[in-house]
Amino acid sequence: MEQQTGTFAVKKGLAQMLKGGVIMDVVTPEHARIAEDAGACAVMALERVPADIRAQGGVARMSDPDLILKIMDAVTIPVMAKCRIGHFVEAQILEAIGVDYVDESEVLTPADEENHINKHLFKIPFVCGCRNLGEALRRIGEGAAMIRTKGEAGTGDVVEAVRHARSVIGEIRRLQTKADEELMAYAKEIGAPHELVKETKDLGRLPVVNFAAGGVATPADAALMMQLGVDGVFVGSGIFKSGDPALRAAAIVKAVTHYKDAAILAEVSKNLGEPMVGRTVANMPEVEKLASRGW
């Protein structure tokens, strides 16, 4: 009776345990404890939140493993960490220190402008960003066990998160109206593996868990994404760039659980203090948009 580790079922399974929850960006062990106490289902350990990466510029890389280890020691919930797109050695390092999930993330500066990491080779699971169904299924084809819509990280503007979630979910709705013999042509059109297109059609959803990310700053933003049909929410800069992180974090957790209950959403939205300042995506030059990274 063999015990098997690192299987796709256990990789995908951890994401299933995160559903209906909020994953929060944290830069210190202290932040991680605040996030856990507020009800986060996992934290993303990093040196700078996306808003600061955006403000400071320069090459953004994997965080110092020592910082990630300190955050892992500080909390009992799963800890995720980011590596650069295509930087499989950063991913190997994150695997070696035992993080629970690797985010191959467009928020960091890409290391490879053609290829993503072959995620099948790892025992730890990966989450990847997407803007549409084709991109989501390419990442799953490479071994991603969880997907998040990209949104536009570090802006506090939810418009791109909405665009990408509507794109993925709308394309799945339209896919379900297609006949099976149309799927190969469709797979070619969106650049996705045929068997995953077929599986998505049959399931009526992505074959792995799909969270929203990139621009969620309020409980209402989080509930909006849930009502659009995602399984949970990443909040990056929105919490620790706000006036009262503990209060806002707890409110966003409650909003994701009670996302259809407007009376509770009104209650948890009261007196949260200043939200993150934010930056409107509509005025942003294309080159500054992180979501266009990834292929």
């Binding site: 015990q3 256990v10 035992g98 993080v99 629970d100 025992k123």
Partner: peptide, 8 residues
Amino acid sequence: RQVDSFEA
């Protein structure tokens, strides 16, 4: 941690 998650 997750790397030790398993099926049996």
